[in-house]
């Protein structure tokens, strides 16, 4: 009887890796795990494959300081050995933070925090004004079609700051299975409303900083 152990890794996804989509990440980690030669668990069935599971997909183009992925091993292996083997094979734009035994289930994820950096200091005031409005109506694609939603009650927390000549917006948004709000819904409004139509010229970058549960504890 093989003993199967769940392993969770926490890592940063940076730089050029932001162009790797969620689906491609699956294949990427499959290969990386194979390269480690750790006793990786494969799914049973006709076409065996490495089991990997991501806690919460990350949109193409976003960086992240806190990504979570699970896989399984078939022989008892020290977490420190797993960390070491992974560090040997991972590229520099995937930074392993740690390997742990999972404490929470991915359906417990309730919110995510994003840092959005606009490379334009003049946006600070207009973003503040925009987010102070009572309603923020936009169209959101759902499984049932496009519907209008109010983003305002979904912004669980926000902060707008000037930082080294940039405008930095921190957003805490609902995340997970039941309701997931992508920060692009808000950046789209900002670029439309605050940038006098010249939105093509404003660059911005999005970094997800952490995943939280209902009690605002860091997901682990």
């Amino acid at each position: 009887m093989v003993e199967i152990t769940d392993i969770r890794i926490i890592y940063k996804k940076l730089g050029k890796m932001k162009f790797v989509s969620h689906l491609d990440m699956n294949r990427f980690f499959t290969r990386m795990l194979r390269k480690t030669k750790l006793p990786i668990w494969y799914t049973e069935g006709f076409n065996k494959r490495v089991y990997v599971n991501f806690a919460l997909p990350l949109s193409l183009g976003y960086e992240s300081l806190y990504e979570v992925m699970d896989f399984r091993i078939t022989q008892n292996t020290e977490l420190s050995v797993i960390e070491e083997k992974l560090k040997e094979v991972l590229p520099e734009s995937i930074v392993l933070i740690k390997a742990v035994y999972p404490k929470m289930k991915s359906k417990e994820i309730a919110s995510a925090v994003y840092n959005i950096k606009f490379y334009d200091v003049n946006l600070t005031e207009s973003i503040k004004k925009l987010l102070e409005q009572e309603q923020l109506l936009t169209l959101k694609k759902t499984k049932k079609g496009i519907k209008e939603i109010d983003l305002k009650p979904n912004i669980l927390k926000y902060e707008v700051n000037k930082e080294n000549g940039n405008t930095v917006l921190m957003l805490k948004l609902p995340a997970g299975n039941t309701l997931n709000i992508n920060p692009s819904l808000i950046t789209d409004i900002i670029l439309k409303e605050c940038a006098d139509g010249s939105n093509n010229d404003i660059c911005y970058s999005v970094t997800r900083t952490v995943l939280l549960n209902e009690k605002d504890e860091v997901f682990i």
Binding site: G15, F19, G61
Partner: peptide, 10 residues
């Protein structure tokens, strides 16, 4: 498919 142009592959 921006990954076609970004480089940095393993």
């Amino acid at each position: 498919k921006p990954g076609r142009y970004s480089g940095g592959e393993d």
